[in-house]
Amino acid sequence: MEKGNFMETNLVMEGVKFMFLGMGTVFTFLIIMIMCMNAMSYIIHRFFPEPQSNATAQTTGGAQQQDKKKIVAAISAAIAHHRQG
């Protein structure tokens, strides 16, 4: 297909077509994904909330995760500071 002269003149147009199709597909996919994620989160929070009996354990888990995030942030802050200084 790349050998034909008549195709060669259209190669850039082919590339542009690829671009529109590709970016269109990527965005369509991600937009559908975002909508599904929102719907999923809503359904899960509405109908399957995390069990109450485990609530304390879960919150501590969450708190631990928060702590971990804070630690990660603190470490990266320290690294950034170190690199600057």
Binding site: L11, V12, M19, G22, F27, F29, L30, M33, S41
Partner: peptide, 24 residues
């Protein structure tokens, strides 16, 4: 924060933009 997924989509423009550049 689901809507940040769009940023991951936009960055794929690097792929298709370069595709046009390569055929050009």
């Amino acid at each position: 924060n689901p809507k940040t997924a769009l940023l991951g989509g936009a960055a794929q423009f690097g792929i298709f933009g370069t595709l046009v550049g390569a055929v050009a």
